[in-house]
Computed example of a mutant assay.
Amino acid sequence: MPDLHWTIPVARWSSWPAAASAAPDIGFIEPIVRRRLSTLSRIALKVAHDCVAQDDVRVVFASRHGELRRTTDILRSISAGEPVSPTAFSLSVLNAMTGVFGIARGDRSAASAISAGAETLGYALLEAYAQYATQPASPVLLVYADEPADPRYGTIEDEVQGGAIAILLNKETAVGQLVCTLSGADAAASGSGSAQANPAEAGAETDADERFATQSQALQHCLDTRKSAAWQGTGVTWHWSWHDCAA
């Protein structure tokens, strides 16, 4: 697999840690809707709202599990012969957050939802870039939010960390560029962008040599520190680096 590179113009970004003790402020959502939202949707809406003003914006929402916990509760109700709330059902779909966000803002712009296993965030970044490159005059908002699956599903390989990240793609107001690289098994084995490369053999230690357990941890490290980070998947390596925009 040949390397795939793309560069994202980052105008704003926001994140919400899974371990946060405070509840996210989503006062822009009407109370009657707000009280029905899950924690996942709340943190997704929080970081999304942090990144956009009043302008219309296309949205790419990404989540490996989505509203799986809500869906699990629905299945429990069905199993017990109990009625299922229509509201709970409507909010259990993967793209529920995008609908709530669009209605709250009065924004009819296109929205899409992505789930791609442990590589969900990486492919969402690629989708957001592809949409922006097709129509660069229109900003694109990437929102990633996830939480671990219900324990009853057992052990899940490369389980998510939880939390949320949002990135607004807009070259006109960009403060930096996020360079994304997807490398195949051959590049990973040679140490190019690999999270498993040996720093001593490479002659210098870099942040990209540190292995992150999830893609969101690697991306968060890159955004927070402006240093390169990588995540090793099955036969592929995802690598991110930051470059400030010229003043």
Score class of each variant (00 low, 15 high):
93 V>S: 15
94 L>V: 00
96 A>Y: 12
99 G>T: 14
100 V>H: 09
101 F>K: 15
103 I>M: 10
103 I>K: 04
109 S>V: 04
110 A>H: 10
111 A>H: 01
112 S>R: 07
113 A>F: 01
115 S>Y: 07
117 G>C: 11
118 A>F: 02
119 E>W: 03
119 E>H: 12
119 E>D: 15
120 T>Y: 07
121 L>N: 02
123 Y>G: 05
123 Y>P: 06
123 Y>C: 01
127 E>A: 09
130 A>Q: 01
131 Q>M: 14
131 Q>Y: 04
132 Y>M: 05
133 A>R: 11
134 T>C: 02
135 Q>F: 01
136 P>N: 15
143 V>N: 01
143 V>L: 03
144 Y>E: 05
146 D>C: 08
148 P>Y: 11
149 A>F: 04
149 A>G: 15
151 P>N: 07
152 R>T: 13
152 R>Q: 13
153 Y>Q: 00
159 E>N: 06
161 Q>T: 14
162 G>W: 03
162 G>A: 02
163 G>M: 11
165 I>P: 10
166 A>Y: 08
168 L>P: 02
170 N>A: 15
172 E>Q: 15
172 E>A: 13
174 A>I: 06
175 V>N: 05
177 Q>M: 15
180 C>L: 00
182 L>R: 08
183 S>W: 00
184 G>D: 15
185 A>I: 02
185 A>Y: 13
187 A>E: 04
188 A>L: 10
189 A>F: 00
191 G>N: 04
192 S>V: 09
196 Q>H: 15
197 A>S: 07
200 A>H: 06
201 E>D: 00
202 A>C: 03
204 A>L: 12
205 E>L: 13
206 T>K: 15
209 D>H: 14
209 D>F: 03
212 F>Q: 04
212 F>D: 01
213 A>L: 06
213 A>Y: 02
214 T>S: 05
215 Q>C: 14
215 Q>A: 07
217 Q>P: 05
218 A>N: 04
218 A>K: 02
222 C>S: 12
224 D>M: 10
225 T>V: 02
225 T>I: 06
225 T>N: 03
225 T>L: 01
227 K>P: 01
228 S>D: 14
230 A>I: 10
231 W>E: 11
232 Q>W: 05
235 G>W: 08
236 V>Y: 01
237 T>Q: 09
238 W>T: 13
